[in-house]
Design a protein around this nucleic acid. Structure first.
Lengths: 147, 147
DNA sequence: TGCTATTCGTTAGCCATGCTCACAGTTAGG
DNA sequence: CCTAACTGTGAGCATGGCTAACGAATAGCA
């Protein structure tokens, strides 16, 4: 596991390894949620909304890196459950302002932990060195995704 | 970025960071494929098949960590394009043996690179230290996914 | 002022990827 | 030999992506 003095990492090889790891783990994470719980996409949108305070659908789509029609669907699901409310924009009547409701914030807080429980439990079995590696990697990957 | 002497990484925090990074980057990778190309799931199955030599649909589903009916669909797509062939099991007539065809191996080799081109290009912009971190992380994540 | 272009969100419709449930064929075991 | 278990598939559903097209509203410019 010591990486000192080894030759440079080839981007293509790394890309293949990463993609494989990401798709497989992503699959596990996605299906490791309780029935009736919010999906990953829904929770992610709700979290972004809460962090930002309020956003238009278009801005939320941009934050989540999906196309507007996709966000329309996700928001519709959240609205159905009363977790997100829409208010008209004061000046521009084309726009809509989305915000998490009280219930939405509650649900987000409660299920936020459960959402990551499966993964967290597995991470507990790792060495702290491995966890540090993953934390550093997460930051790098996040940057890559948002380029 | 120096991680020495810092306190332990909390699994839940790490889980949240990782899930976020994985879902976002996974989204980018999934949609960064050439038109007419195979999808990630299809290429992944084809690769697994090629690595193993031959597998039954059930075993392939297990390797890919999906349910058998899901694999049925994926294999059907690959079969349509002549990339995978099925032969009957010599003793057990319930079972089927799947193997990549010559054309399948060819396509896999050719599009394997293109599939990861987007990601590889971004990885080239990183420092070698970052790439080492990611390579180590990929191995850890892969292990987690297959637990 | 009034026409035109742009922007915003949504609708419609497509496809991929997952799932569960149910079933037919086959094999294995008592 | 009959029943139980296993294998793969079909049917049907939900989610989550996308593009294309559209209506409403705004902005810009003549």
């Amino acid at each position: 596991m010591t990486e000192h003095h080894s030759e440079p990492v080839h981007p293509y090889h790394l890309a293949t390894q990463l993609r494989d790891a990401i798709t497989r783990l992503g699959r596990r994470v996605r299906q490791a949620r309780a029935v009736g719980d919010l999906t990953i996409a829904q929770l992610s949108a709700l979290t972004s909304l809460e962090l930002a305070g309020a956003l238009s659908p278009g801005d939320l789509a941009e934050v989540e890196r999906v196309r507007p029609p996709t966000m329309t669907k996700i928001v519709a699901k959240l609205e159905e459950r009363g977790l997100v409310a829409r208010t008209p924009h004061p000046r521009d009547r084309r726009q809509v302002i989305l915000a998490a409701t009280e219930q939405g914030r509650e649900i987000n807080a409660r299920f936020g932990r459960e959402r990551d429980a499966w993964l967290a439990q597995r991470l507990e079995g790792l060495s702290d060195a491995d966890r540090r590696t993953l934390l550093a990697a997460a930051a790098i990957l996040r940057r890559l995704a948002c380029e």
